[in-house]
Design a protein around this nucleic acid. Structure first.
Lengths: 220, 220
DNA sequence: CAATTTATGTCAGTCCATGACAGATGACAA
DNA sequence: TTGTCATCTGTCATGGACTGACATAAATTG
């Protein structure tokens, strides 16, 4: 890796660290991009060359998460029942996240504190999950042997399990700043969701097809 | 109702109509607040006295939806099983929405077209649903006789059903601009979710309590 | 009509974000 | 080492979303 790339990487990290330092001290909203740039001795314009927006910086970790979760699902054995594969994948994701966080506890804690102080960020991060859910839906549809464009069931399955994760994270705001608590809460809601779902529903053995009306198929 | 209030109401409607007209013609992003204000012959400053933001205007209907859905749940009979009440409430909500839309088809269609052209708005509207979900959770917890602060099950139940609705709406973007199709799609996913959930899970008869670790209860 | 309340317009200013251009700096070959 | 090239960076200018402060105009009330 050349000097240039090293410097870039360095600047990127400095921006994140500087930003979270300020977020922590004065809050997310109250911190301006100019302040962050100044703290790292970089022009405000450069900030936007590294991050598309202030929010992008704050939620940077989500793109890493997307890779972790889609990768985890893709790695599940082919012969595993789809729903089981999905739950396993999410569990593995949590533990991958846990290991990452342990390697870098300091950043993890700062991150959590900022989100704790501004839960809207968490909400937004899950809204951004939409893209990830699409990827997961495609893979689930493949495993279920159905077409995600006309059959909403894989999409629904992904949405149901994802919302369980979401609840787990939300439960961990306001007080539960610690990694273990977070992981425990997410695992908890995941298990509850597993119990709440009817086993074998992912097998698509139900009589009715999942066809959904669209403009093309039902102009009514 | 005095003249003053009538004028205010009138201005509000004019702003919405003017805005959606422009959104439809040039897109949501491409339309500036100044343009909207100019179209209604009002100062841009006044726009922000009626709507907190451009997004607030575009998603104004969501607050009405919140009232519809929470009201529908509150109106369900006390002796109905909680989960059943929740599903019924959502079905009623859909049909209330349907009736409202039929009364004012023109606005409804414009609205749909704008959201169709800008799915980010739809995503945001669901992100805003978070507040509604909280209200629903409180009511569900009451019906289940449990404490929403420590027991994640009511929260999870609400999240699961809500995500089914979300999928229904999402299926209706890109093509399904018609009211009937939308309603049919949402009903469809709602029914699928009903089938996917294990009956009686809402009765809380499971052995394990739903206790979630918090900083207080598990300083881990 | 007079006094009070409230909505609106104007103005100035902050913040987020982006395009254009020029200068600095690392990469790389001769 | 040196010169070329690609790329990163700072500076400047701009636009759009939003807000606070203050004056004005309009409606309400008596």
């Amino acid at each position: 890796m050349g000097l240039r790339e090293r410097k870039k990487h360095q600047t990127r990290l400095a921006l994140m660290d500087g930003a979270f330092e300020l977020f922590l001290a004065q809050g997310y909203e109250a911190t301006t991009v100019d302040q962050i740039a100044a703290a790292v001795d970089v022009s405000p314009r450069t900030f936007f060359r590294y991050f598309g927006s202030k929010e992008d910086l704050a939620l940077d970790f989500t793109v890493e998460y997307e890779e972790l979760i889609t990768g985890a699902l893709a790695a599940r054995p082919e012969d595993e029942p789809p729903l089981e594969a999905l739950f396993h994948a999410f569990r593995e994701f949590i533990h991958l996240m846990e290991r990452n966080a342990e390697e870098d506890t300091e950043r993890f804690l700062k991150h959590r504190q900022v989100i704790d102080a501004n839960p809207a960020l968490l909400t937004t991060s899950f809204a951004r999950m939409a893209e990830t859910e699409k990827l997961l839906t495609v893979e689930m549809a493949r495993r279920q042997g159905t077409d995600p464009a006309t059959d909403p069931r894989p999409r629904l399955l992904v949405a149901l399990v994802t919302s369980a994760i979401r609840v787990g994270f939300e439960c961990s705001v306001d007080g539960a700043t610690h990694l273990r608590t977070l992981v425990a809460n997410v695992e908890r809601t995941l298990t509850l969701a597993e119990q709440a779902l009817r086993p074998g529903w992912d097998q698509l053995s139900l009589g009715s097809s999942g066809q959904v009306a669209t403009k093309a198929s039902s102009p009514g």
